[in-house]
């Protein structure tokens, strides 16, 4: 019984030390584990130009314009505080629309515009049939449910 007690102690101590080490490493690395920056990060943090980066946010309402030849699209990505302009030429994912969460990969130009090389649509955690969404919108509670999901 005494041996088993000691081994239990070893395992528990080992796990506690390991957990502590992992917590330290993750909290130190946390800035580098971010998949994308928000437009506010871009405005307030020192992020060098000319290097590929990712921006995440919502496609601003009414900001999507396709060029005359139909090849490129410009739109704004916003986090409701700051926004950045994106220029992208290429196929857009199915979920791309105004108000949709997106993640952009691209390079920031000197004037602050992002030349995007990839546009990814970000799905939110809400899963609903279309009728439910219509009902929520009719009742004026769609925004409320969106806010609750944030």
């Amino acid at each position: 019984m005494k041996r088993q007690r000691r081994r239990l102690l070893y395992v528990v101590t080992g796990l506690v030390l390991l957990g502590g080490a992992a917590a330290i490493v993750l909290s130190v690395l946390s800035d580098n584990l971010v998949f994308f920056y928000s437009p506010t990060d871009l405005a307030t943090q020192q992020i060098p130009d000319g290097r590929p980066l990712r921006i995440g946010g919502l496609v601003a309402d009414g900001s999507v314009h396709r060029s005359a030849d139909g090849k490129s699209t410009t739109f704004d990505v916003t986090d409701k505080v700051h926004h950045v302009q994106i220029i992208y030429s290429g196929p857009l994912p199915d979920l791309f629309r105004e108000g949709q969460g997106v993640v952009i990969e691209g390079v920031r130009e000197a004037n602050g515009t992002i030349m995007a090389s990839t546009v990814l649509a970000k799905h939110d955690e809400r899963y609903m049939p279309p009728e439910v969404v219509d009902a929520l919108k009719r009742a004026g509670r769609w925004q409320e449910s969106a806010a609750a999901a944030r």
């Binding site: 993750l26 946390s30 584990l33 998949f35 994308f36 995440g56 799905h123 955690e125």
Partner: peptide, 10 residues
């Protein structure tokens, strides 16, 4: 904990 492309817990 981090901003991910994957959606949060539903």
């Amino acid at each position: 904990w981090w901003s991910t492309l994957h959606q949060p817990e539903s």
